[in-house]
Computed example of a mutant assay.
Amino acid sequence: MAVGVLALQGDFREHAAVLHQLGAAPVEVRLPRQLAGVSHLIIPGGESTTIGRLLDRYGMLEPIRARAGRDLAIWGTCAGAILLARQVLDVKKGGQPTLAVMDITVRRNAYGSQLDSFETLLPIPLLGEPPLRGVFIRAPQIETVGKGVEVLARLEEGAIVAARQGRLLVTTFHPELAADDRVHRYFLEL
């Protein structure tokens, strides 16, 4: 199984490091031909507008959409969650390209600016104990989920921060920064 990490912008190196620790050989994906050989793709955190525009510029939107959730499991972290969402709230004028393949609505920068970034312990029942350290950096929030979407984790006040729809997974936080590989292992099993 080849695992791709979208390497256009953002924290793709951190995801690749976790995958190496798990014994996987990650493939840095920048062009459609590099996508062809992967069964799993991680879309990392970063700046969602920039990543979306680069996906468009390099002709990656349609090849990813065509395989999303079928023969390609996809996990979007933070900005990646925004890119997978069918609807994105608080988009600046001019918008941003998205993949729009997962039946969720996401609010960009839901907790405020970079200064409002935070960490918290997240109980994620399917991962067992202990709670995962959730690292939220200018994080989005999942506002609504469609019928086929399973909520995997919430903040204490109820905000949705992780969800799954078939072979599509999103986390609005950064598991790759938490020194805990359980979400990566879970994704590799999709």
Score class of each variant (00 low, 15 high):
V91I: 11
E62G: 00
T98Q: 11
G69A: 14
G59L: 06
K93I: 15
D90S: 15
L72W: 13
V88Y: 11
L99C: 05
T77I: 15
A85R: 15
L72G: 04
R86E: 14
E62K: 07
G95F: 09
T98F: 10
V88R: 13
I74P: 06
G59N: 02
V91N: 04
R67M: 11
G69H: 13
L84N: 05
A68Q: 06
L72K: 06
A66L: 04
C78Q: 12
G59E: 03
V88L: 11
L72E: 03
A81D: 07
P97Y: 09
C78H: 09
L61H: 02
G80E: 08
R70C: 10
I64R: 02
R65G: 01
L99M: 09
I82P: 07
G69C: 14
G76Y: 00
Q87W: 15
G95D: 09
L89D: 07
T77S: 15
P97Q: 07
M60I: 07
D90N: 15
L72H: 08
I64A: 02
A73V: 03
M60T: 03
G59P: 00
Q96P: 04
D71R: 13
V88N: 08
E62L: 04
L99V: 09
I74S: 02
W75N: 02
Q96R: 13
C78N: 11
D90C: 14
I74E: 02
I64V: 11
V91P: 01
P63L: 11
G69R: 12
M60K: 05
K92G: 15
K93F: 03
P63Q: 09
L99T: 07
A73K: 08
V88E: 09
Q87P: 14
G80T: 10
I74T: 00
V88A: 08
Q96N: 05
R65A: 06
R70T: 03
L61P: 00
G94L: 12
P97W: 09
G80D: 08
K92Y: 01
P63G: 04
L89W: 06
W75G: 02
V88H: 10
L83Y: 00
A85T: 09
L72R: 07
R70F: 10
T77R: 11
P97C: 09
A68L: 06
C78L: 10
L84C: 08
D90A: 15
A68G: 04
L83C: 12
T77V: 14
I64L: 04
G76K: 02
D90L: 14
